[in-house]
Design a protein around this nucleic acid. Structure first.
Lengths: 204, 204
DNA sequence: GTCTATACTCGGATAGAC
DNA sequence: GTCTATCCGAGTATAGAC
């Protein structure tokens, strides 16, 4: 894409993104208007727009930033060696998100809005989901080869289920923050473990 | 609440809701502005507002209508007798939704927006999720008693996972309508079956 | 009790000066 | 690269006609 053009504006962009993230984290998604964000950056609205084009593009960049940080935490490049380990990685991710409710709300709202194909952030989410599905499928296939997962289930289907569960739990959690999102995930983990025992005895 | 007051306006309300549903189903969620909906009902904007108060309340009523229809399809009052049957009920629901993309989009967007406690539709969704969780927990407990579900998993946790999965799959599906949402659910169904075999042999 | 007209707010986007 | 000024679209609030 035509991003990151001149090195001068880049520093300013990063500065704006950092304050935007802080504002959203502190004051919640409600404060994520161009006016509030501009004010927090000591800039006019047009100043912001000059750097990011639209509000949505700005917010997308905020999420993209979080993705980069999360990618390290999840250890994307290492396939998990056990089903339990995979679930725990997801649980860690989800727990980290729970510490920043404003970002969770931003994510839920933007991902719902951007479902419309014309939406400026549509491509971002489409790619993101595609990558997540690929990663999940690869991880689960790997586990299947290791005998950590029953052969009867399709890794692609299960990957979709997991991604959907993570997104859905974050939505549910916004309505009742007493919910521990990791419990739902670990319940799935328990099922995976039991299913593997069951499948194994059927194999032999 | 102070709804359904006079029997005269009730008919008009129903008429408006029906056209709103048709507009959203045909033209998608993008057309769900007060202007479009008013036009479709041959009414002024204030005419609509008079009947429903705010745009969100109108849209909430549209969803509430669908809930009522779905409640019959799901057979809420009958607890499922097998895990597979429970999964199939969810699959049926999700398939019916897939036939009306506009409503799915409406649901995703409104449920994300209404996560803010001040939002007029917040209570609707909060109650809806609460009821869904209760129903899911009861169903799963029942299955556990029947020996259709391993004793090791918590029905409440699993219910949350299922609800989250349904919502999440609907979001995912909006980004790639070639996805068959029922596959994710059936993958979970397969896990439940395998886990029960595994758990059973451990019991004895 | 039902509806309309008008006017207001707020959020986002755009044009053009400096 | 940043601002001032302006516009537009969407939702809401009020007064009042029938």
């Amino acid at each position: 894409m035509t991003r990151r053009s001149y090195p001068k504006g880049l520093a300013k962009r990063e500065e704006i993104l950092a304050t935007a993230l802080k504002v959203i984290a502190e004051r919640g998604f409600g404060g994520a208007t161009l006016r509030e964000l501009a004010e927090a950056s000591n800039l006019s609205i047009t100043g912001l727009v000059h750097h990011f084009g639209t509000k949505e593009q700005l917010l997308t960049e905020v999420l993209r930033r979080r993705d980069e940080v999360d990618a390290d935490a999840y250890e994307m490049d290492r396939l998990p060696e056990t089903a339990a380990a995979m679930i725990e990685r997801l649980a860690t991710l989800v727990d980290r998100n729970a510490a920043v409710p404003g970002l969770v709300t931003l994510y839920s709202n933007l991902s719902a809005d951007a479902a419309a194909p014309e939406h400026p952030s549509h491509e971002y989410f489409r790619e993101r989901y595609e990558q997540s599905q690929d990663l999940g499928r690869d991880s689960l296939s790997h586990l299947q080869e290791l005998g950590e997962l029953p052969a009867g289930v399709d890794p692609g289907d299960l990957a979709q289920l997991m991604i959907a569960a993570v997104d859905g739990l974050q939505l549910l959690w916004q309505y009742d923050q007493s919910i521990d999102m990791t419990r739902g995930l670990r319940a799935l983990g328990a099922l995976l473990a039991l299913a593997n025992e069951g499948g194994r005895s059927a194999d032999e």
